[in-house]
Simulated scan of single mutants.
Amino acid sequence: MPPGSTIHSRRAVCMACAASLLLQGCAVSPSIAVVGAYFPGWLFCIVAGVVLAILTFLALKRVSHDRLLGPPALVYPTLVTFFSLIAWLIFFQH
């Protein structure tokens, strides 16, 4: 065995173990059956995030507080992301 090969083989074993641990998240696919077709769960979470952001916009517009948030091009995509991630945590937490 050439010198240093044990270091490379240990590193390869450690990388293989790390890869197998990271792939454990791929064991269950969060899919939702809708009329016989399976859709990914993140798609529904994004739709929920967009709907909740629109409802937030309408509620703030109704009470005239929509100008207090800042630039809408930055705030509303952030709200969509926030609501989508919250929906993911609520509905797909295993």
Rank of each mutant, 00 (worst) to 15 (best):
R62T: 08
C26K: 11
T6S: 15
A53V: 00
A19R: 13
V50P: 04
L58H: 02
V75A: 02
R62P: 11
Y76A: 02
L79E: 00
A33K: 10
G4T: 00
Q24F: 03
S84V: 01
A73D: 11
H65T: 09
P40H: 04
V50A: 05
G25T: 08
S64T: 05
I7F: 14
A87R: 06
L60K: 02
F92I: 01
L23R: 12
V35N: 11
R11A: 14
V51M: 06
Q93S: 15
Q93E: 14
R62I: 03
A18P: 14
V34W: 01
P72Q: 09
C14I: 15
R67W: 13
F57R: 03
A87E: 02
F82Q: 00
A59D: 06
P40K: 01
P3W: 09
L79A: 00
F39N: 03
V51K: 04
R62D: 07
F82C: 05
P30C: 04
C14V: 14
L79K: 02
L68P: 11
T56G: 10
S29F: 07
R11N: 12
F91M: 07
V75I: 03
G49A: 03
C26I: 07
F39I: 04
T6Y: 12
F92K: 04
R10L: 13
L58D: 06
F57C: 01
M15N: 10
H8W: 09
A12S: 15
Y76W: 03
R10E: 09
H8M: 14
G49K: 00
I86M: 03
W88S: 07
V47S: 08
Y38A: 10
F91P: 05
G49P: 01
T78I: 07
P72V: 08
C26Y: 10
K61H: 06
A19N: 08
S64R: 08
C17W: 08
L60C: 11
L60Y: 01
A37P: 11
G41K: 01
P77N: 00
M15R: 13
I46W: 04
I7Y: 12
H65A: 12
M1P: 12
G41Q: 01
F91E: 05
A12L: 13
K61I: 06
A19C: 11
A16H: 10
P72Y: 03
Y38T: 06
V47C: 08
